[in-house]
Design a protein around this nucleic acid. Structure first.
Length: 569
DNA sequence: TTCTGTGGCCGTGGGG
DNA sequence: CCCCACGGCCACGGCT
């Protein structure tokens, strides 16, 4: 309860200026810090910097310019930093500047304002979250579905279940003609099961609970695309504002790829469905399957499509089953959240992203975020995102094949799995694999360079940006593991373990990032060189293993399965 | 209120 | 005429 942690950040407009708001939990108290002296900016790469500066003088909404020398891949370039008054002006101004005669291209004009602030200020969201006494809750709704699928314009919410990290559990529902005579005979704990008069009261009670319990993190299972939109739509019907934000603002849905994300201001909503889908490799990701996959236990379940029957049945046993099912869904969600959040906190801290964003990021986005942050320190110009057509063309190009060993048929005992994904970071570091060092002019005639099996060479004179960051990450992991070994306190051990896991996850994603078609720092040459060297070392390891009587039964880009053959077998 | 997924299939059209 | 590069379109999976 003694620490201060940054939960969320946004900006508002005051007197036509953007004001950043930082939502903290500080020694158990909510605080908001406002920053009113940070201005949006981006860079223009000129053909002729004097001419460009002249052209820009004719544009409105630019507060000022600054000449800077920055690095673009392996070249030094003079750029103009354009400082604006308000982030909303960026899209318009960047189009104008892009079209100026002396502007070659614009850079870093697509980094959202609050993210830019967090990067530039060095803030670490979720720092010390474990000591901030965060109140976490989970919620889940059941809705009426006599027509099969339920639709918020037609079918009411039947109950909202709630559970929080301080031990409160609730199923909030309402009396109807079919259940009113059952309730008193059901022997339910009135502290858990609340029967109100109607759906509207249920929603109001839910909102009140989030506020009264001073919830800091709201978790759900698919709340992004089901529960929150559903409650919001039903609230609208009754004229209730779903104002769960710490500042009294309503929840907001935003597009994130093909799905939605639901944002609650200052009280981050973390949806466990996308988190689990990314963290585990299960055939299905229903709450039931994920719960069983993680904990090895089944939970009480009823067929979702029959919920309306349980509600309408007028049968005490059936109705109770529905209540218990609803409660079990929310306690399962909370348990999953409590298991998954520590790593999510750490991943967010590692890439310095709010937990709302961090918990919804792909591994590629995490790597990219880390690179963008480090680029600033090193005065490196961040490459632009590829256009759709460039990304599509990239993903169409074929790659030199990975390491493949045709599976040996049969059932094998004593299988040992060698995972080579963890090999790639050291391959990248030790051969200085980077978009700025590949086939560099400075080493063209030089014998002293790293030459990949695929023919590309990598600079030995200048350290690449990506290998440097990766090296820092690996060093960080070694240091954490050292601390973990020496630690005796169980809580601290868990924290260190999560820290090293987060670093490992991100470090192991660098190779995939280089091959990722939408990456700013995409490099086919680098990706191919990495796997080619990787294959070389795998073959070496396999040959060694075979000398000692092991046999490779299956292999792919990432791993090799080896068995030990007995003498004479 | 600067940012928006990804991969596969299929029809089209231009170049060899 | 064939091939392939390109762009448009669709589905994916979870909640009830």
């Amino acid at each position: 309860m003694n620490a201060k942690t940054l939960l969320d950040a946004d900006y508002i407009t005051r007197n036509e200026r953007a004001v950043i708001r930082l939502f903290y939990k500080d020694k158990g108290i909510r605080t908001v810090k406002e920053i009113d002296d940070f201005e949006p900016y981006f860079y223009a790469v000129p053909d002729d910097i004097d001419e460009l500066e002249n052209e820009i003088k004719n544009l409105n909404k630019i507060l000022g310019t600054e000449r800077l020398e920055m690095t673009d891949l392996n070249k030094k370039v003079a750029v103009l930093k354009l400082i604006l008054n308000h982030p909303k002006d960026v899209p318009e101004v960047r189009e104008q500047v892009k079209n100026l005669e002396n502007c070659k291209e614009i850079r870093e004009a697509d980094i959202p304002f609050t993210r830019r602030y967090i990067i530039d200020s060095g803030l670490v969201p979720m720092e010390d979250a474990e000591d901030a006494g965060l109140n976490v809750c989970a919620f889940d709704i059941e809705s009426y579905n006599p027509h099969g699928d339920c639709r918020a314009d037609r079918d009411p919410i039947l109950m909202i279940s709630y559970a929080d990290s301080k031990g409160m559990e609730k199923v909030i529902t309402y009396r109807t003609e079919s259940n009113k005579n059952l309730i008193k005979d059901m022997n339910l704990d009135p502290g858990v099961f609340e029967f109100l008069n109607n759906e509207k009261e249920v929603i109001q009670r839910f909102i009140a609970l989030i506020r009264e319990r001073e919830i800091d993190i709201i978790t759900s299972y698919n709340g992004d695309n089901f529960d929150f939109p559903y409650i919001r739509d039903r609230s609208g019907k009754y004229g209730i504002k779903l104002d769960l934000g710490i500042d009294g603002s309503e929840i907001r849905s935003e597009r994130r790829g093909m799905n939605l994300g639901v944002k609650v201001k200052g009280r981050p909503h973390v949806d466990m469905f996308p988190v689990c889908r990314q963290a585990f490799n299960f055939p299905r990701y229903t709450l039931e399957d994920v719960y069983e996959g993680i904990f090895g236990e089944t939970k009480p379940d009823i067929e979702a499509r029959n919920i309306h029957e349980y509600w309408d049945s007028g049968d005490a046993k059936k109705f109770k089953k529905l209540l218990i099912y609803s409660l079990s869904d929310v306690t399962a969600t909370l348990r999953i959240a409590e298991t998954m959040l520590p790593l999510q906190y750490e991943l967010s801290r590692t890439v310095r992203e709010t937990i709302y964003e961090g918990s919804r990021m792909s591994s590629g986005q995490r790597v990219e975020q880390l690179l963008v942050e480090n680029a600033r320190e090193k005065k490196i110009l961040v490459p632009n995102r590829p256009s759709d057509s460039v990304a599509k063309a990239r993903s169409r190009t074929s790659y030199v094949g990975g390491f493949v060993v045709t599976p040996k048929k049969g059932i094998h005992d004593n299988i040992v799995l060698f995972d080579f994904r963890s090999l790639y970071p050291s391959v990248i570091i030790s051969h200085n694999i980077d978009p700025s060092t590949v086939n560099c002019e400075c080493c063209r005639e030089d014998k002293e360079k790293y030459i990949a099996p695929t023919g590309q060479w990598f600079c030995k004179k200048n350290r690449g940006f990506i290998p440097e960051i990766l090296n820092k990450l690996i060093a960080k992991r070694v240091a954490i593991k050292k601390k973990l070994k020496a630690e005796t306190d169980e809580d601290m051990k868990k924290l260190f373990d999560v820290q090293q896991q987060a670093v490992k996850l991100i470090a192991n994603s660098f190779y995939g990032y280089l091959a990722f078609a939408r990456a700013r720092w995409y490099s086919k040459d680098c990706a191919e060189a990495t796997t080619a060297w990787g294959r070389k070392y795998i073959h070496k390891a396999v040959d060694e293993a075979e000398k000692f009587g092991f046999e490779v039964v299956y292999g792919d880009t990432d791993s090799v399965f080896v068995v030990l053959r007995e003498e004479g077998e």
